[in-house]
Simulated assay, not measured.
Amino acid sequence: MPTFVAIVLICMNTTPPERCNEETAVDVLSITVDNEMGCMTGWQEIVARSTLASHLGKDAYMRTICRRTS
C-alpha cells in the first residue's frame, strides 16, 4: 500500500507563491500520511509545532505538497 508525505512549506509573504518551495521556505515540515487525502488534512498538528506558526496570515503563508513514498 503506498504511503505519502505531506510537506508543509512556510514562506514569507515577500516570496511569490510560484517560488515557494523547499529551498525558499523559511520552515519545511513533513508528516507521513496514509493517502492523498491525508495530505490535505494531516498536517495541522505539525504546523502548530512550527516556531513560525504565529506568523501565518500576517507576514507568512503556507503551502502543502503531497509526495508518494512507496
Results as ranks from 00 to 15, higher is better:
residue 2 P to W: 11
residue 3 T to H: 15
residue 4 F to A: 03
residue 4 F to G: 03
residue 5 V to E: 11
residue 5 V to F: 04
residue 5 V to P: 01
residue 6 A to E: 13
residue 8 V to F: 06
residue 8 V to R: 05
residue 8 V to G: 03
residue 9 L to M: 05
residue 10 I to R: 10
residue 10 I to W: 08
residue 12 M to T: 13
residue 12 M to N: 12
residue 12 M to A: 03
residue 14 T to Q: 15
residue 15 T to S: 06
residue 16 P to K: 14
residue 16 P to V: 13
residue 17 P to W: 02
residue 18 E to R: 12
residue 18 E to Y: 12
residue 19 R to W: 09
residue 21 N to E: 00
residue 21 N to I: 09
residue 22 E to G: 06
residue 22 E to I: 12
residue 23 E to Y: 14
residue 23 E to A: 15
residue 24 T to I: 07
residue 25 A to H: 15
residue 26 V to I: 12
residue 26 V to G: 06
residue 27 D to Q: 04
residue 27 D to W: 02
residue 27 D to L: 02
residue 27 D to M: 02
residue 28 V to E: 08
residue 29 L to E: 05
residue 29 L to G: 06
residue 29 L to M: 12
residue 31 I to H: 07
residue 32 T to Q: 01
residue 36 E to I: 08
residue 37 M to F: 05
residue 38 G to M: 08
residue 38 G to Q: 07
residue 40 M to Y: 13
residue 40 M to G: 14
residue 40 M to C: 13
residue 41 T to M: 09
residue 41 T to C: 04
residue 41 T to A: 07
residue 42 G to I: 12
residue 43 W to M: 00
residue 44 Q to L: 07
residue 44 Q to T: 05
residue 45 E to T: 07
residue 46 I to W: 03
residue 47 V to W: 02
residue 48 A to Y: 01
residue 49 R to I: 01
residue 52 L to N: 11
residue 52 L to E: 08
residue 53 A to I: 04
residue 55 H to P: 00
residue 55 H to N: 07
residue 55 H to S: 12
residue 58 K to Y: 10
residue 60 A to F: 10
residue 61 Y to T: 02
residue 62 M to W: 14
residue 62 M to L: 14
residue 63 R to W: 09
residue 63 R to V: 12
residue 64 T to G: 03
residue 65 I to D: 10
residue 65 I to A: 10
residue 65 I to Q: 15
residue 66 C to N: 05
residue 67 R to C: 09
residue 67 R to K: 15
residue 68 R to N: 11
residue 68 R to C: 06
residue 69 T to H: 00
residue 70 S to A: 14
